[in-house]
Design a protein around this nucleic acid. Structure first.
Lengths: 214, 214
DNA sequence: TGACTTTGACAAGATATATTGTCAGAATTG
DNA sequence: CAATTCTGACAATATATCTTGTCAAAGTCA
């Protein structure tokens, strides 16, 4: 008679799949910590497990490899940012430009509040593998779409179709990221408001210019 | 009596240090090929040597590790680009804007002409190590300085000091890079002139905007 | 309490790669 | 031609890490 190897039962008052889910979350948090401080390359699975307070067995329960975990951590960060931006867009009680600035500010603020996030989202994610590259590209396209959206809101005279074919939102997304790079590498010395002001300049300059030709 | 282990003499009509230099160049060329097609992570030293037509011994003669070679390859690419841009700047017989466009066009053209270069310069270089990250940051700052320079030439009313403290050139550099990313990932489908036109829009929009406030 | 599951610690094999070393033969010089 | 250096092929060692497996003890349930 074969025993089922995966006997799942209530344990500590918690169902098996829930316990597993909790371990998964612990590992993601540990990944954020390890990747965000030591760096992805210099982190191995034993370290991650150490930080999570679990052993390797549980790592492989939830992830196939280190890269898998990085992907999960990254998605967590992106989703979180995406939700916040959308929320800012929803309750747009003020002027469109102010809404956009609020969203932008939040985007940068998150980096300052948790430098581990900045490290992963801006640096560690780069050049790991083709799969991860794809994740990154997706995120960048999301950011470009967000820029596109805000451009339309703030400059209503811009023809939407023109913007849809344009790479200008992509370019502005690149600006935002590159400025973030410099800001982070400089240890957040530049005041956040200065950063926002510079970005606003770029955004407004480009917006007005396109609008004037529509 | 000890023999000198490094007996260098003329061999094949070539001095020892020159022969070594040639092997080094072969390895750099092999690095360009391997990193640019297989990718940095998936390339090991044996492969590099295979492509170069040399054996491991000669690899360690010129480089300490794979990262060292990547650094050398990258510097080669950046220096080459830098030289071209400077040359374009020197013989500025036409209008400043045209000069700038010519330089920008060359910047993108090089990627199309040799996709291995694009792969390394835009993707493979990312996230390898802290040292390599520093190289990348240097190159990005060079690019930003170049943008700054062209902004001053094309829009002479802009106060130079303002621009020096500004992150706007950094932002524009980011735009250029991000647009290049999308272009390359899209397999160079978008015509080069379209790319240039988009970049010009960004450049002019920002230039005019700053100028109008000086 | 007794049966059974979950957990943690660690062993052990597998794998991949870096890096150094050896050696014989080809190439070259004087 | 004889001496000797250079070269290429490959062995061998070192190292690091992944990944799976074992086992006993602790925890939990009925």
């Amino acid at each position: 008679m074969k025993k089922k190897t995966t006997q799942s039962r209530i344990y500590g008052g918690v169902k098996a799949n829930l316990r597993e889910e909790e371990r998964r979350k612990k590992l993601i948090e540990a990944g954020l910590e390890a990747f965000g401080t030591r760096g992805y390359a210099k982190t191995n699975i034993k370290m991650i497990c150490g930080v999570a307070g679990l052993t390797e067995r549980y790592f492989y329960e939830s992830f196939r490899h280190k890269e898998d975990l990085l992907c999960a951590v990254y998605r967590e960060l992106i989703d979180e940012g995406q939700r916040d931006s959308m929320a800012a867009l929803e309750d747009s009680d003020g002027f469109p430009l102010e809404t956009a600035l609020r969203a932008l500010k939040m985007f940068y603020q998150r980096f300052q509040q948790d430098p581990r996030r900045a490290q992963i989202q801006l640096f560690e994610i780069l050049g790991v593998s083709q799969n991860i590259d794809r994740e990154y590209q997706n995120a960048m396209r999301l950011l470009a779409d967000m820029v596109r959206l805000f451009l339309c809101k703030v400059f209503p005279h811009i023809h939407e179709e023109i913007l849809n074919r344009s790479m200008i939102p992509t370019g502005l997304a690149g600006s935002i990221i590159m400025i973030a790079h410099e800001w982070v590498l400089g240890g957040f010395i530049t005041p956040l408001d200065d950063i926002i002001s510079q970005c606003t300049d770029l955004f407004v300059a480009v917006g007005k210019h396109i609008e004037s030709r529509s």
